[in-house]
Design a binder for these strands. Structure first.
Lengths: 239, 239
DNA sequence: TGCGTGTTTAATAGTATTGTAACATAGTTT
DNA sequence: AAACTATGTTACAATACTATTAAACACGCA
């Protein structure tokens, strides 16, 4: 099945507000959600809290610089990172590679170039994931392993039935995207399913009872007249 | 509803008529449609009204200069922009990059070179566009995501019902185009709808109440005796 | 077979959306 | 201007959808 998330989340860390402003407009229009950090500490913080799909990181920042942020983030995540470097800064480039950056853009840059690189990196990641048949997922306090067919909440295993697990997987591996009952019946049950679509409701009910709590950082929303959607907190900010 | 992808629409903004004349012939031969603007204000206006696929922008213009035009256009659009600069004007180059220009051509230029750059940029854009399914749309302060079934105004989510969302999507993804009530009933409700066409009016009413404000930069206009049209600011006067 | 787990259906109540009717207003035609 | 038609507005009724509960069903397994 096609992996098609509705919007990627991108963290931009730079002390120059102009960079944020110009990138924000571009990203918004492409359907990406942008989060801002103005120094290294903020960047690390945001990376942990928001779990972005990509980080754009200025090397030169007051306090904790880009390289340190990169190293810090890499301790807990392998989210793709694009570095912003000053022109012709060879030393940074080498060090950044060791720290685990995925790409470089030299300043000054055009927003479109950034967009192009971001898309390229995201596409690479997507393809890699497809290859892996990536059957494992961690979002916030939720963990799903489709090889073992296990679900964990806050690290604690929660017994889930096969259907429950598959529905949760479908929703959670495409956060923000709505799935209709019909769609799920087709993709999970199979193309020959004839029964009532309300069966889905029953499973959603039980999933919610087992897993959904107020402080999860995510929730399964009902989209009236359409279907269900896995929603991560903090998808409504921005101005 | 069909986009004319074979014939691109290109806006050229320059106060020198000779530039228009020489480019026009070349673009014609390639099947591109060229629009002319002779100063900054015209350029901004045309960009809004015609929604070109590309803008070629002279930096040196009487009144509003190229950089200002670029910044103005970038507020509402990601359309690719190529700047025309005087020879060896390094400062402009830097500023233009930040404003969101995509390429530069230094005067004097050969029309052939312009054509080559235009093609290159258009190809880059096209490749980038292929990545995302177009179930997402941003016009001015309005954002619609049909995967997530969400509508945002100024970045803030506005709860909309399924019918409202679909009608808005139909209209907004084809700005300037009129849709009759019958057409919408067919394409959104389905071929089996029996009721009154005034049902559409009710939904339009509710959409307007929720979303339409004076300073949006867009509006849902009633086309008397025909239907409704999504209109972006400055495009009142065309068929 | 009977038990247990997991899944689906049925029934109900509650809620959000949607269509309609009635009237007011605005645009068009005679 | 009057007559007419299309649209805006309002409030309400009809409809469609969902949550919840409980019970029926299906299947594997001792």
């Amino acid at each position: 099945m096609e992996e098609n998330r509705s919007g990627y989340k991108i963290l931009v860390a730079d002390d120059d507000p102009n960079v944020h402003q110009s990138l924000n407009a571009y990203f918004r229009r492409e359907g990406y959600q942008m989060i801002s950090a103005y120094d290294g500490e903020q960047a690390v913080q945001q990376a942990r809290m928001q779990r972005p799909d990509m980080i754009i990181l200025d090397i030169m920042m007051p306090g904790m610089d880009g390289l340190m942020v990169c190293r810090e983030v890499r301790k807990t995540s392998n989210v793709p990172i694009i570095m912003l470097t000053a022109k012709g800064d060879e030393f940074d480039k080498l060090l950044g590679l060791e720290m685990g950056a995925d790409d470089y853009i030299t300043k000054p840059f055009s927003p479109r170039e950034v967009l192009a690189r971001v898309k390229a990196v995201l596409r690479r990641i997507r393809e890699m994931k497809d290859d892996d048949k990536s059957a494992h997922l961690v979002i916030s306090n939720l963990e799903i392993d489709m090889n073992a067919f296990t679900v964990k909440l806050n690290g604690k295993p929660i017994p889930c039935t096969p259907k429950e697990t598959e529905i949760l997987w479908t929703l959670a591996s495409n956060p923000g995207m709505v799935f209709s009952r019909e769609h799920m019946l087709q993709s999970i049950w199979g193309y020959d399913f004839l029964g009532d679509t309300r069966a889905v409701d029953s499973h959603i009910k039980r999933i919610r009872a087992k897993l959904c709590a107020d402080n999860n950082g995510w929730d399964i929303k009902t989209v009236w007249g359409v279907g269900y959607r896995f929603e991560v907190a903090g998808a409504e900010n921005n101005a």
